[in-house]
Design a protein around this nucleic acid. Sequence first.
DNA 1: GTGGTCTAGACCACC
DNA 2: GTGGTCTAGACCACG
Lengths: 133, 133, 133, 133
Amino acid sequence: MQFWIDTASRTPIYRQLKDQIRAAIARGKLHPDDRMPSVRDLSRQIVVNPNTVARVYTELEREGVLNTRPGVGVFVAQNRADEFTRKARKERLLALIDQFLTEAVHLGFSAAEALTLAGERSQQFQWQEGTSS
Amino acid sequence: MQFWIDTASRTPIYRQLKDQIRAAIARGKLHPDDRMPSVRDLSRQIVVNPNTVARVYTELEREGVLNTRPGVGVFVAQNRADEFTRKARKERLLALIDQFLTEAVHLGFSAAEALTLAGERSQQFQWQEGTSS
Amino acid sequence: MQFWIDTASRTPIYRQLKDQIRAAIARGKLHPDDRMPSVRDLSRQIVVNPNTVARVYTELEREGVLNTRPGVGVFVAQNRADEFTRKARKERLLALIDQFLTEAVHLGFSAAEALTLAGERSQQFQWQEGTSS
Amino acid sequence: MQFWIDTASRTPIYRQLKDQIRAAIARGKLHPDDRMPSVRDLSRQIVVNPNTVARVYTELEREGVLNTRPGVGVFVAQNRADEFTRKARKERLLALIDQFLTEAVHLGFSAAEALTLAGERSQQFQWQEGTSS
DNA sequence: GTGGTCTAGACCACC
DNA sequence: GTGGTCTAGACCACG
């Protein structure tokens, strides 16, 4: 996996990295039990303070996305979405949808346009058994 | 127009208000030359520091979304939806899409499920025509 | 609320503080919407680096225990346990129980003794409508 | 005796093994003068670096829990359950109880529910008599 | 005033 | 080698 940071962006470095890791997993580019680069390696690679990388790994660990074994390394975890209530998950998804559509309209697109483009884009995302119905 | 602020949200108050005004214009709920409520009225209505409202009006004026006519009031400016190039806006939309789909997958939904639900959801709103094509 | 840190202990400072805050909430000594001391105040009070306190607040925020409103302060959140599956919650509780009983036996107590003492101690904990049955 | 290591757990491997050996003795599954498996055998059995097993044996010997007879093997020492004072052990137990109840309440259980379940759970094990009274 | 982010550099425990 | 924790001190955004 290759990660890149845009230091000019206003979104924090740790946020950019977190998002990229989550996206890589959602797209199936990283699989459960895959080994992540070490904190020091990754910090050198993307030219960022090791603490910042460590923070990302720690937060993703607490969110259940990664597993870290001190002294050994950091690994991609199993998906734990099924620990959440169907209701909570659907509420969260609806919030995401509203946010997405609102921002798309801010950009001057119609909802239909945004969804069409999203449909094309979704091909890159890992198919997954639905658990919400 | 009715505006609402979620003080519990992580997005700054001034950003929420700015976004809502822009969204209202984009959706055609506010039209060019419509008069905006005064800073004091609006600050009372949404229970927010007047400084914050003033800041929003100032920034939106600088961005050409609003016009202030001193001693008269604040008014909606002419449509500037094309302030971004088509390319920049599309790039931003793609980023939004990726972010949305990533989160949906992490919630345990498939991309298809998320988009289906988004399609239903989008019909509950009155979105304006896209301007990107 | 008064918090104290044992710098001689081997359990990390941030862990001690986190545990105390969680315990105060569980015992009803801190209630939803109560305001927490500011990062700087608390760091001065317990003589710890502000970053360490900030870390605690950030983590508890991500866990849904606290709400932070940047520029305003940090507040106790509502209990969100109902977002988790009954199954996930019960599994977690059973793990807690096993861990507790095992450690008690390590200390040379019988399970019965440990549970008797826990029964007395539990009077200090806030009663709460069971949601597991 | 059968030992198992959970490499995914956050508690260090050497700590898991140490705790299990102590627990086995506390529960009466290992008795004074019982012979422990060799470092090499045990490391193969639980798939762990031999250094780690050696460290555990060394530490337990230093703590008086095991005895090494060079060229012969490692053996369980005489019972030292009273190595802590009654007061220190009770303080530690109270801390464990508070921690347990806090987590249970945050999971949405009442203290009473948690203790009831703990009571049932405790009967599935063969705990030894308490030594604190 | 508030919290949020980042860096630099230290020391520790674990394997 | 690995990750975990803590400090000191900086700068920023927000209200």
